[in-house]
Nucleic acid binder design. Structure first.
Lengths: 231, 231
DNA sequence: TCAATAGTGTCTGTTAGACATTATGGA
DNA sequence: TCCATAATGTCTAACAGACACTATTGA
């Protein structure tokens, strides 16, 4: 059992082409939307994710910020890495390895450039296979981390109503939530504080505006949930 | 507002040096342990994570499997990507970008090569700064995903007692769990099935052996938890 | 006045943790 | 016999969801 290949302690590092592919997500008209840019006529698909190679010395999140900014016309509020992919799937720039990054932006922020457009997550046009995978993974990552990470608040303006917040959670989770339970749990979490402003939208009672203001508190210490469902 | 930099639709892809850094995790004597390999005398730190550049055409997980196999002498049971890093922190091979991958292996599997050793997660020797970051992130990722992913079962032999399983969860979560609650939740999850074998270890009543055998079931549909704790 | 939305109080079934008890082996 | 560990039953407090109700605005 001692004739295994030696450990590559100081292996020769090969050179690889690397792309940062950004999934800019934003709530648009009752659906999560992705920002896509029009591809040149020569490309096989007509749309693609905003992407680029990182500049020398530029961090991956910095590159993602630059790329998102160029397409959206504003800096997204939050970045979450989706992971690195180097399967055989085709990338528009034929990069060997892609780092997928989800960028979250509130509705109505920024003015996308002429060649960019929002598409609902549920009805995307054809994308290069690797971009398709990255979008799917980004959506999964965002859904998975929504209650460990303040993701939802990054899809909202600095002040928001509790119905706004619940709406974002419903978009992210893809299902309706119970209003009273949602507010009770939110109250117990000390994540938001009320402002003294109210917003009136058409009919109905005006809603109080809140802001994200998490209070330090000890972790929940709850039991194991075994939330694996094999589908 | 139209004089923003053009979108890099077809940017020139630069070449980058890429490393896959593997955090092999295994339960050893009541603590999670990481497999490190002895670095050459010329290196600044005496130990490092097993790592290598991916071969041309080799997927990242394939590379991680090859690298882990070379150090551990056996294939780990599970891989979970930790993410890509390209901050300025120093890497033993000076790679521009590292992809960190956590590899899980049951206790007692494999025979580490001569230059490899297990270190408890809580008392690691000095590592190159980027390796240190990757280890910390791997531990965080594993802790975070333990109830969405069958991680715990990959740190156990194919059959195990419920006390074994609870012990692994306690290692991963870093806290004690309530026995009756743990078993109730496990029962309700349909993740394990009993075998007709029993194991007697020293004193005490012998324990029944179980195996991981998840049944298809619908997702839990529970409410939002707001499990962000800012510490 | 009606319609629509915000926000809250109460009830009930479920569940997590505390505690106690039984079961079964080895020393 | 005693001790250690496995496995399970019961009680209780906390919680999630259903439902109903009040509050406050615009049409």
């Amino acid at each position: 059992m001692r004739d295994r290949p030696p450990v590559p302690i100081k292996a020769a590092v090969r050179r690889t082409t690397l792309a940062v592919d950004v999934v800019v997500l934003s709530p648009r008209t009752d659906a999560l939307a992705v920002l896509l840019i029009r591809a040149p006529a020569s490309a096989r698909e007509r749309w693609s994710l905003p992407w680029d190679a990182p500049q020398p010395g530029e961090g991956l999140e910095d590159a993602a910020a630059r790329i998102a900014n160029a397409a959206l016309g504003a800096a997204p509020a939050y970045f979450e890495q989706v992971g690195a992919l180097s399967d055989g799937r085709r990338h528009p720039g034929d990069a060997d390895v892609s780092v997928g990054i989800a960028a979250l932006s509130p509705a109505g922020v920024g003015l996308p450039i002429e060649d960019a457009e929002w598409f609902p997550l549920a009805s995307l046009p054809a994308l290069a296979p690797r971009h398709r995978t990255i979008v799917d993974r980004a959506a999964a990552v965002v859904r998975q981390r929504v209650d460990q990470s303040p993701l939802a608040f990054r899809l909202l303006a600095p002040t928001f109503t509790l119905s706004d917040l619940q709406g974002v959670y419903e978009l992210l989770l893809g299902r309706r939530l119970h209003k009273a339970s949602f507010r009770r749990a939110l109250q117990a979490s000390y994540l938001v504080e009320p402002t003294d402003e109210w917003r009136s939208e058409g009919r109905g009672r005006p809603a109080q505006l809140f802001r994200y203001a998490p209070k330090k508190r000890r972790g929940a210490r709850r039991g194991v949930r075994f939330d694996l469902f094999t589908e």
